[in-house]
Nucleic acid binder design. Structure first.
Lengths: 266, 266
DNA sequence: CAGTGGTCTAGACCACTGG
DNA sequence: CAGTGGTCTAGACCACTGC
């Protein structure tokens, strides 16, 4: 509905302090553009604008929130810096998506040693299984659930040019992903995070990875078709939606004889 | 001296196109604030303002470059986003430094599994050796040198709580680091990159890492006091100064039984 | 051509720092 | 208190997109 219309202040040109309307969700003291950012964020979470769609123009938002275009602009600047929206000059500002961009697999830092991600092409994906389980203590902790809560476990292998390169095991909270099956995963063409968006309305926004070197156990070694003495990269990722809500725990084993994990520091 | 004073344009309020003065170094077409950013960058490289020092206020820079404060602000915003300068409200804008910040070891992503970097304290550093060598083909390529050019090689071990955890081997171009010795490295207290700043005027700005899982050879294993079958993280880093000039190649072996490599994705 | 984001300006006031 | 960076506004014009 016509909810979040305007921060109710009447002290132009600079209100300064807290200025939120009815929901009153600003605990301390934040600049106007931060409050506007928060309001836009709420609309993103609530699904008012869906991934891939355009959000209203800066002028429209400025009118809606009763602030200047510059203030909206600064709010959107930050959202764009966090990869939540994408600006396109002359067209508009769009809700970021893991699909339909050529920035696919944004969270996958493994790349071929020759650097040519292009010629390598997309991974060949093989689902091993997809089970309904109850969360163990560590899984529950990572996903902010309680031990025993229902979770989905997916295991799969990614291969490049016929060479199995990544073995992944991932856990998802049962409730938001009700109805996810191995079949739906297999039939879907494109990044898994894109499927999460379109089928479950869950958009992954941010993630953290912990990396170690390990030796695989015999099952892992056979799935990746490597010797058990071949060291592998163990990459544990927790992915978050809006609001810093953890929505996925993923444990990956990466072969690093033909690929490497690339990271830019600044 | 009083070189870079102002982009010479006389078409207020918006020149639009290329507007650089004498050196004329803008090939294509860039907004004013980008040109200002470039000019500030030149002053940073030239050492007009040294790491830790304050740069002129936004007002001063606006006057110097004959643009509005807002334009200078946007230029500095980008430099701050790239960690080249640090803004401090009420005090000024300062040239970023690897020393004297509590953001030390910005490029070291290894951290203890309990996450408590504080209680762990600083690493105990042991220099193994520091040799003058000639660059091999791969070293030369990484540092944009020619094979056979003089380079310095440093090897060292970092330990935490008496446990050797990191074995590093690093190469530096000979010319800029003339006079670096094992002694000076050992005597220096603080991050190596801070020493590079104060003693050699080389500031590392950005880096890229390639990560693999490997088994150590016998020498490496003994230096880290681990079994030769213990898989380790191999982290190859190229660090860059201003102008994307590579200034260091560093190959690290990380133990990941008590520590892990942490990476934030967004 | 109208509509979008992108740049630039000028001026006002706020928040923080230190003398 | 003066000086710094930080926020906000209003208005102008530029660059790009697509009808």
């Amino acid at each position: 509905m016509a909810t979040s219309t305007a921060p109710s202040f009447a002290t132009p040109p600079y209100a300064g302090g807290d200025a939120l309307g009815a929901p009153g969700l600003t605990p301390a003291f934040s600049p106007l553009y931060q409050q506007i950012k928060g309001l836009i964020l709420q609309s993103l979470q609530s699904g008012e604008w869906k991934p891939g769609e355009a959000i209203p123009s800066e002028m429209d938002l400025a009118a809606r929130f009763r602030v200047s275009q510059g203030t909206v602009r600064k709010a959107i600047d930050e959202l764009a810096a966090e990869n939540l929206v994408v600006r396109r000059q002359g067209k508009g500002t769009f809700v970021a998506t893991h699909a339909e961009q050529h920035v696919q697999y944004r969270f996958l830092k493994l790349q071929p040693d020759n650097g040519d991600t292009q010629s390598e092409g997309p991974a060949e994906r093989t689902i091993i299984d997809c089970k309904r389980l109850r969360a163990s203590a560590d899984i529950a902790r990572a996903l902010s659930l309680r031990s025993g809560d229902p979770v989905l476990q997916v295991r799969r292998v990614l291969a490049y040019g016929g060479v199995p390169t990544i073995l992944e095991e991932l856990w998802l909270p049962g409730a938001p992903f009700k109805g996810l099956t191995a079949e739906r995963l297999s039939n879907y063409n494109g990044p898994m995070y894109a499927l999460f968006e379109t089928e479950f309305g869950v958009r992954m926004v941010r993630a953290e990875e912990s990396i170690r070197a390990i030796n695989p156990d015999t099952e892992q070694a056979s799935l990746l078709k490597v010797d058990a003495a071949t060291p592998l990269l163990s990459v544990e990722r927790v992915a978050y939606t809006y609001n810093d809500t953890p929505m996925e725990l993923r444990r990956g084993l990466y072969r690093t004889d033909t690929h490497h994990y690339r990271n830019a520091l600044s």
